[in-house]
Design a protein around this nucleic acid. Structure first.
Lengths: 219, 219
DNA sequence: CAGGCTATTCAACAAGCGTTGAAAAATCAA
DNA sequence: TTGATTTTTCAACGCTTGTTGAATAGCCTG
């Protein structure tokens, strides 16, 4: 009676509902800004159940962080491979690589599954946090990032590795702020730009970043 | 007997010590990740004193946020004015404008005053936070940002305002991650890049961003 | 239907939280 | 030295927090 509900909304398995609620709340308020009781309330579940399924609060946080990581990494890796397959011997261009790095995120956010939007906002929170940031990000994303950086190195022959890393840092920052969905650019532009218009965000980000890479790494 | 201490370290006026401690802790752990008791302990002060000087916890947070805002805005505005003064009728170039936007931050962080480093990390935290972000940032920084955007508009004749705002968004993201000082790029690059090497960070960021603006806004 | 396992709730714990009012100390003016 | 004012401490409040152990309900296997 729990899974095949007609609406398919509130009756998902409780374990999953806890993850969903935690994902949304952690993304908006951070680890310390959220209470296990708030999570339980939103999941319509008893407080103790989170503990039964996930252990301590920090373990729940990590479970949320890891739930979608593999599938996200697969999508991005696959996009990179695809661009490499269609390219010639010299490999894909900078634009194509950045495109492969970013578009899967846009697609994930556009599935209509709000969970992905919250998840990516959570990644933004973690990536920008001096405390959780380095360790948690490294653990899940370093391998993938190094693949992309290697591809960029090939697309920018003769570039100094140091320069590539600094450029990646700039890319990562622009992306992080986009994922955070803070609505700041909405206010600033008087409604001309909308944080939730992801296609516009990435359409402007890709040429911006590609030009930056070329400028810094290729002269 | 309190101010003219020989070392000038721990004997600063207590009100200021509270702000310093709060600044550092809020920057690292966010608003909810810090306890008034932790702040008081670091400031070597009684818990109740924070309340006496600043009121509620949120008021203290805002006091920290506002303490250095005016002087920072002045420095950046002055840098913009200087670049406008030395430029001809068509105004400063994109590089010069970005330079004016960023270098005062580098200088602030390099004064040796650790407080500035913490303060700028706090701004990164706020700017990336969906909850505090838009309102608090707008209140203190919108006027200045609009001045810079106007200058960029003049340096990029014919550019669509929408494109300029999206480029500013990318710039803001790269800057925010730099200010956060998360050490992620240090790990990723195997020590090749250092988050606290601000000159390197800005030296790479300025041409990167300027090229991005040109690419997106000027063709 | 019986029995074992998993999932879920209930009730409560000690600890720590932000905040407060009143007492004490320090500072300053006359 | 007085007395008034500001600054700082003390002690405590009511409340919420994360976490837990025991009790209950649900579910599958035989």
């Amino acid at each position: 009676m729990s899974q095949p509900s007609p609406t398919g909304q509130t009756t998902a398995p409780r374990r999953e509902r806890i993850l969903d609620a935690a994902e949304e709340l952690f993304a908006e308020h951070g680890f310390d800004g959220v209470t296990l009781r708030q999570i339980a309330r939103r999941a319509e579940v008893d407080v103790a159940l989170a503990n039964y399924h996930f252990g301590k609060k920090l373990d729940l946080f990590q479970a949320v962080f890891e739930r979608r990581a593999a599938s996200l990494n697969d999508a991005r890796r696959q996009a990179l491979r695809a661009s490499q397959a269609t390219a010639g011997d010299e490999g894909p261009t900078v634009e194509q690589i950045i495109e492969a790095f970013l578009r899967p995120l846009e697609l994930a956010q556009e599935t209509g599954d709000e969970g992905w939007r919250h998840y990516l906002a959570l990644i933004a929170y973690i990536n920008n946090s001096p405390y959780w940031g380095p360790r948690m990000m490294s653990h899940l994303f370093d391998d993938l990032v190094h693949e992309f950086i290697a591809a960029l190195g090939k697309a920018l022959p003769g570039a100094r590795p140091e320069n590539i890393y600094w450029c990646y840092h700039n890319l990562s920052g622009a992306l992080t702020l986009t994922l955070a969905q803070t609505k700041r650019i909405d206010n600033l532009s008087g409604g001309l730009c909308r944080s939730d218009d992801l296609q516009a965000a990435y359409d402007h980000m890709i040429p911006f970043v590609a030009a930056g890479f070329r400028e810094v790494c290729q002269r």
